Simulated assay, not measured.
Amino acid sequence: MSEKPKLTYFNGRGRMESIRWLLAAAGVEFEEEFVDTKEQYEKLCKDGSLLFDQLPLVEMDGMKLVQTRAILNYIAGKYNLHGKNLKDRARIDMYVEGTMDIFQMILMYPFTPPEQKEKQAVKIIGKITERYFPVYEKDLKKHGQDFLVGNSVSYADVQLLEAIFATEEIKPDVLEQFPQLQGFKARISNIPTIKKFLQPGSQKKPPADATYVATVLKILKIE
């Protein structure tokens, strides 16, 4: 039996959370090692574990994988979550690039100064509901399928569901005007492996708090 993938990152969501979601959706158990100090991070850099001195790091199949998209693409390919052919993969990748844009906004939101958070939240939700969610809503209605691409769950579905949950944490009623996405959320949430990951006690991480933000800023020397 092969060893479980080992995930090395800060003890929080960040760029690792999508990797956790995708592994969980594939039914793959994984182990985690959290970087809590600058010394841990510097050791990873010095011993050559981080190709570009950046986290996340995933060790699996005898490789040390870095760069979020590369890791996600490897997992999607390995566990048949990247479509049945090259055309499917292209469509999946386009949808994923959209959700990546959403994640980039949400990823930086906890690092927003308190006095700017309300304004930033309005800006983020406005962009998501005007530019991104309407695309998924339209396409789901147009092809009338349960999934974004083809007749089985893909990398794109997992990422979109994660993006929906993350956006709802900022604005709980964000799907009010998107009935197709409401149905999509219900369907994908009920896939057994994903349903399990959404339960309390899983390795799904909570929203970033002040402690997480302070730890990341300290380790990466961001002022």
Rank of each mutant, 00 (worst) to 15 (best):
S2G: 05
P5H: 06
P5D: 05
K6C: 05
L7W: 13
T8G: 01
Y9W: 12
M16E: 00
M16N: 02
I19K: 03
I19T: 09
W21D: 00
L22V: 06
A24K: 11
A25G: 10
G27F: 08
E29Y: 10
F30W: 08
E31R: 03
E32N: 08
E32L: 05
F34R: 09
D36I: 08
K38Q: 15
E39V: 10
E39F: 06
Q40D: 13
C45E: 06
G48M: 08
L50W: 12
F52A: 09
P56S: 02
G62D: 09
L65R: 09
V66M: 13
T68H: 01
L72C: 10
Y74L: 14
Y79P: 07
G83D: 10
L86T: 07
L86I: 12
K87I: 08
D93G: 09
M94L: 11
Y95L: 09
V96M: 08
E97V: 14
F103T: 00
Q104M: 04
I106H: 00
I106P: 00
L107H: 01
F111A: 05
P113T: 13
P114M: 12
Q116Y: 14
K117C: 11
Q120G: 12
I124S: 08
I124D: 04
I125R: 14
E130I: 05
R131D: 11
D139V: 12
K142T: 12
G144W: 03
Q145F: 03
V153D: 11
D157P: 07
Q159R: 10
L160Y: 05
I164K: 02
A166W: 03
A166F: 02
D173G: 14
V174G: 07
V174M: 10
Q182V: 13
K185S: 04
S189P: 04
I194P: 02
I194D: 03
K196I: 15
F197L: 12
L198C: 08
L198K: 12
K204C: 07
K205P: 05
D209I: 09
A210E: 14
T215C: 12
V216Y: 01
L217C: 13
L217G: 02
K218Y: 11
L220E: 05
I222P: 01
